[in-house]
Design a protein around this nucleic acid. Structure first.
Lengths: 224, 224
DNA sequence: CCCTCAACATTGCAGAAGCATTGCGCAATA
DNA sequence: TATTGCGCAATGCTTCTGCAATGTTGAGGG
């Protein structure tokens, strides 16, 4: 579990960091709004612990900013003030929970766990054909629930074909998808990969096949 | 509710004891660090009320000692000093909450209740695969009833893989789960941890294995 | 109708890239 | 300070992958 801790007071920050580490959390520490914004933008966190009082402004203003970028990371706000209007502010701005200082670490941990419990499993796009499914985000192919591990190049061939299941994919377009611009391929490497992929698909699935069309390219087809 | 009260000052101790009794709490009283250690080791308490100033040392030193034995009993620290560094110390040592003397008994009771509320709250999530189970909340791995203790980094690897048992976890995503920003990793450290974890899993369980997929990442699967 | 040639298919191979494992020294931890 | 964890680098190994050699297919022309 990866946590972004935004807290300017060095001692508290370091204490929290060690305490969280004891629960096997990976903690990045930002001491200012600016820093926090950068971190949140460039890394993926499972939760953000956010102090309101920061040298360069109210921590709460960070929340709408990252939400606007489509970042749904749960945010737990820490604040010294404890009146209820604060709490309302926080929730209005898109924070997920709120904790008044001074707090018991036990409580912080409990609330943090509650936030982390909700599945952070990002849904990624999955393409299906025959009995196989390709999870584009996780680069994973499954056949009837069993993982089918393929080498990188074959994976790329399969992806390009699957994206246009049942339709032609031009040879040139496949080349580009499989070998970027970097690789200068001057052989039948593509044919090779297609061939190897064919064999594996036949063994594992049997419900899809790759047809070659002379002079044009390839297409992947479900067999009925 | 069973409470261990660690307090050397006789008057305060006895007053607290009586007061807590009124709320149906069973209170054991230890007047020194030594005594407290014995009590904590031999009995199961729902919470520990711990004074820092004890005749034979700083009460706080008790906390890491009992934690090392795997005892997670919530600890509420009482102290005469009220500056924040105290609180920070407490966090570092693994205490759960902190109360400055003099305090209102009402507040003590409120904080104590907050700590005691925990067991109900913590419905810790357990992931299973093969013969092993991972208690996410208690950071505990068990194999056929036997605890398996793993170093932090290996535990993080295992957790990340276990959260997606049977499915692919990209290398980059594993890196994020295991290393923070501070750790500038420029070696095969991840591979190292995976390797060590593999060996331990093979020895202890034998029913799960970690497959590496070149160019993509790793996946943990149960073997039948 | 068959021959020819070009395009595609398949397979073995060798170089390379990526991964696995292990020992070591430093650092954090107890 | 004794111990454990950790990152790092060296080493060996597996797998990938581009290539070429050889086999196969199919379309068009004779």
């Amino acid at each position: 579990m990866r946590i972004l801790l935004v807290e300017d007071e060095p001692e508290l920050a370091s204490a929290l960091k060690t305490a969280l580490r004891r629960y096997d959390m990976v903690v990045d520490h930002a001491a200012s709004l600016l820093e926090a914004g950068d971190f949140a933008a460039s890394e993926n966190y499972d939760a953000i612990l956010l102090d309101r009082q920061l040298p360069d402004g109210d921590g709460l203003t960070l929340v709408p900013k990252i939400r606007a970028r489509g970042n749904a990371t749960p945010v737990l706000v820490l604040t010294a003030r404890s009146d209820t209007s604060d709490k309302v502010d926080g929730l209005d701005m898109g924070a997920d929970d709120y904790l008044a200082k001074p707090f018991a670490f036990e409580e912080l941990l409990a609330r943090l766990r509650a936030l982390l419990r909700r599945p952070a499993n990002v849904q990624t796009q999955v393409i299906r054909a025959g009995d196989l499914s390709f999870d584009l985000g996780h680069r994973e192919v499954m056949v009837r629930g069993e993982p089918l591990t393929l080498p990188r190049r074959e994976l790329l061939v399969l992806e390009a074909l699957l994206r246009r299941t049942g339709r032609m994919v031009q040879r040139s377009s496949l080349m580009e998808a499989v070998f970027g611009l970097d690789d200068e391929i001057q052989s039948n490497a593509l044919d090779t990969h297609v061939s190897r992929l064919r064999r594996k698909l036949a063994e594992a699935d049997g419900k899809v096949e790759i047809n070659g069309v002379r002079g044009v390219g390839y297409l992947l087809r479900e067999i009925s």
